[in-house]
Design a protein around this nucleic acid. Structure first.
Length: 550
RNA sequence: GGCCCCGUCGUCUAGAGGCCUAGGACACGGCCCUUUCACGGCCGCGACACGGGUUCGAAUCCCGUCGGGGUCACCA
């Protein structure tokens, strides 16, 4: 067990999907506390929900954490699912000491009681049945399924919270015997978390405020097991900008919404969709929204299924709410920027300080500056942070970030570019918000000359309007460019501007036709640098092809 | 509904009784810059939820109201 003077924090996600912003914020705060105090930060996998936990999700979680740079100090990862014997031994001891007991009500019975309580507008509370010794012996002999509940001492449970203040908790009227082992033999979250934290010597637990009342159960367990009570801090909850609670479900929900629209509008039937996406039709129809439109369906598609549904409907990444850390990575945010932004959701270093490096966050972090009120997650500011950070980051950092972006966007044409080319692309797009933007705005540079598709409205507006004014200028410019012996942005600029002076045309009247010819659209990096990058042969070829196609 | 938490500009927040005619950032509006999309520069708009106290003095303390959120699972 660790030296009690050292702070030990942990992040204990359950592997049911990618890391999302709420989880990342929790991980960050625990990590910052450990790093600030010179303590330890541990990572543990809470996979006691066998039905929902997957190894794939676990790997993704770890990948996301690594990307963020939140490193953990335990060499071996703790998986709760591999510690069942330990939990069972302790639970058996609790039963033997009379501090916990087996309860034989079925799920159905409990559900019925709960519904009855709801109808009567009463709060549901489990009451331990008084079983005779005879009944107990009989149930045991039958091997009847059961759960184990903690015989919770009825009293007041109070604790001091470093965020919310002293004296949190509930009175004796609010406690009930909760389940510590499920009928499938797995411990519940409450039990495993208390045992594991105690064994690992965790001293500080920062978690979301939705756990506030769980703490009561955890304290009762700690008292029953003779464990020390760690310091608790319950973080404000991160909400969507519409005020609803943010969750991984939002992504699934959005897709479900769109699918619902398609079906209602008769675009495709559910059966067709299931077939096209290769999802089991029964599973697919169970997932569909109900007719009432209120979406309370707990079933979610896994990430692979989501991807195929999106593909079928032509949805892009931009159509999804950015909830997952992975989304931010795919869109080209810098991890240090995301951490900076996340740190400000519920915490502030004080004064007007906002922009911080990771090292500065570590230095400035303190528990007493964590706020109490929930925060809405609005990306605008994050985007602005990213823009500024990308503009001021040193080139090697941006190059590394771009390579990382490309690694999670394998379809990008820019994967073919060497570092020198990427550096040029980064420079000519200076002032961009996201790496995705650089990617999309520069992909024409990496296409073959015959792959450029001219956008109809761009051709119309820039080339054909006013009796082919643009196209005529383009023809003359083509001749000038063809005659250039030196192909640098500067030389090209001199030549084009010279033409503008002679013809009394504004630069825009000349630059836009060139832009459309070489890129296919009205948007590109600055035109002279673009042409230099393309090189003379490509530039000439693209302009000629464009003129020929008019 | 019971219990619990929270309540400063649209958003994230600074503010710990006088420093506040409430500061910053993002967003928004205007102007400037400009070969496109952007970037950038300048200016502006904009909040102490409401009502009572306490006090010479309250965004800051107390009470009530209202509003938002959490929780009440064999999910974590």
């Amino acid at each position: 067990m660790a030296d009690s003077s050292v702070v030990v924090t942990r992040f204990a996600p359950s592997p049911t999907g990618y890391l999302h912003v709420g989880g990342a914020r929790t991980a960050l705060f625990n990590w910052l506390l450990a790093r600030h105090t010179g303590g330890r930060f541990l990572l543990r996998i809470e996979d006691t929900d066998v039905a929902r936990s997957t190894q794939q999700a676990c790997d993704q979680l770890i990948d996301d954490l690594r990307w963020l740079g939140l490193g953990w100090d335990n060499a071996e990862l703790v998986y709760q699912s591999r510690r069942i014997e330990i939990y069972n031994r302790i639970i058996d001891e609790l039963i033997a000491r009379g501090l916990a007991y087996k309860a034989y009500e079925t799920k159905e019975v409990l559900d019925r009681l709960w519904h009855a309580a709801q109808r009567a507008k009463r709060q549901y509370r489990y009451v331990r049945p008084r079983l005779t010794d005879e009944q107990i012996r009989q149930f045991q002999a039958e091997g009847r399924p059961h759960v184990v509940r903690l015989a919770m001492p009825v009293k007041e449970y109070r604790f001091d919270d470093v965020v919310l203040g002293a004296n949190q908790g509930v009175g004796p009227g609010e406690v009930q015997d909760f389940i510590i082992r499920k009928s499938d033999g797995m411990p519940t979250y409450h039990f495993a978390v208390v045992v594991d934290d105690a064994e690992a010597g965790v001293t500080h637990i920062l978690r979301g405020q939705e756990h506030l009342l769980n703490t009561v159960n955890h304290i009762a367990l700690q008292e029953a097991l003779g464990y020390a009570r760690p310091t608790y801090g319950h973080l404000p909850i991160i909400m969507n900008s519409d005020g609803s609670k943010m969750s991984k479900r939002d992504r699934d929900k959005k897709i479900r919404e769109r699918v619902g629209q398609w079906i209602r509008s008769g675009k495709k039937t559910a059966e067709q969709m299931a077939q096209e996406t290769g999802i089991d039709p029964q599973r697919f129809s169970a997932w569909l929204p109900d007719k009432t439109g209120n979406d309370s369906n707990p079933l979610q598609l896994d990430l692979g299924e989501q991807a195929s549904v999106m593909k079928m409907m032509g949805m892009g990444r931009g159509d999804l709410p950015e909830i997952l850390i992975h989304d931010f990575r795919e869109n080209g945010y810098l991890p240090e920027v995301l951490l900076n932004f996340l740190s400000l959701l519920g915490w502030s270093p004080g004064g007007d300080r906002e922009r911080m490096s990771v090292a500065e966050m570590v230095e400035l972090f303190s528990l007493d500056r964590i706020g109490k009120s929930n925060a809405k997650f609005a990306r605008d500011k994050l985007l602005a942070f990213n823009t500024e950070a990308c503009a001021s980051a040193p080139m090697p950092r941006m190059l590394a970030a771009f390579r990382d972006y490309l690694s999670v966007n394998p379809d990008s044409l820019l994967n073919n570019a060497d570092d020198a080319a990427l550096e040029k692309v980064l420079k000519m797009n200076h002032g961009f918000h996201l790496l995705r933007e650089v990617d999309e705005k520069s992909r024409f540079l990496f296409m073959r000359d015959d792959q450029i598709e001219l956008q109809g409205d761009a051709v119309e507006k820039v080339l054909k309007k006013n009796e082919n004014q643009g196209a005529n200028a383009l023809r003359e410019i083509l001749a000038i460019l063809s005659g250039l012996s030196s192909w640098t942005a500067h030389e090209i600029e001199l030549a084009v501007k010279g033409y503008c002076d002679r013809t009394q045309l504004g630069l825009g009247k000349v630059a836009q036709p060139i832009r459309v010819a070489v890129s296919g659209s009205t948007v590109s990096p600055p035109i002279f640098e673009t042409l230099e990058f393309l090189g003379k042969p490509s530039t000439i070829a693209r302009i000629e092809k464009c003129l020929a196609n008019l």
